[in-house]
């Protein structure tokens, strides 16, 4: 995901300064990794260089003076282009979970014990997310839904893998 496009989206509401952008990013995308300030400023510099944003002045609300950034016409066009694009479905199976199971089988060991422990860890995380949903903001609930359904997909794959395991073992033994 491109942080630049998320910042452009936040700026499409009104001009904002860097600190505001960091705060709003973390608030609106509650499940995402919080942005580092360095990342915000580096991204803003790049957006300005590409002509997608411009500095419109400074703001001072009791604290230090802050540079205010605004989205440009070119920025809006770029944002629209990004929103119209689809995310390409992942072309590779890149999960470390998958790699561990295959390697465990290759190494002559059993993946079964690993899979059961992984299942317990996933389920513990799902319990935390489920509890959080009970009192979360709408954005937090959406983020928890996303995480829960992905963990659930992993778990269902783990279950299938456990069932297929005897088959896999037979194959490498042969």
């Amino acid at each position: 995901m491109s942080i630049g496009h998320v910042l452009l989206g936040l700026l499409s509401e009104r001009p904002k300064h860097g600190y505001e952008l960091k705060k709003e990013h973390d608030q609106r995308l509650p499940g995402a990794k919080p942005l580092a300030y360095g990342q915000v400023y580096a991204t803003l510099q790049r957006l300005e260089r590409d002509g997608f944003t411009e500095v419109t002045g400074t703001a001072q609300e009791g604290g230090p003076e802050r540079t205010v950034h605004a989205i440009t016409e070119a920025g809006r066009t770029e944002l629209d282009r990004w929103l119209a694009e689809i995310e390409a479905p992942a072309p590779y199976v890149a999960s470390p979970l998958f790699a561990r199971v295959v390697v465990a089988t290759l190494a002559g060991g059993t993946a079964e014990e690993y899979l059961l422990r992984q299942r317990a860890a996933h389920l513990t995380r799902m319990r935390e997310l489920t509890a959080r949903k009970a009192s979360g903001s709408p954005a937090q609930v959406l983020a928890a839904d996303y995480a829960l359904q992905h963990l659930d997909a992993d778990l269902r794959w783990i279950e299938t893998a456990l069932e297929r395991h005897t088959v896999l073992k037979g194959e490498t033994d042969a």
Binding site: A120, H122, L123, M126, R127, T130, L148, D152, L155
Partner: peptide, 11 residues
């Protein structure tokens, strides 16, 4: 359903 199981204290 794992998502239902996640409501429980224990599996």
């Amino acid at each position: 359903d794992n998502r239902v199981a996640a409501y429980a204290d224990r599996e």
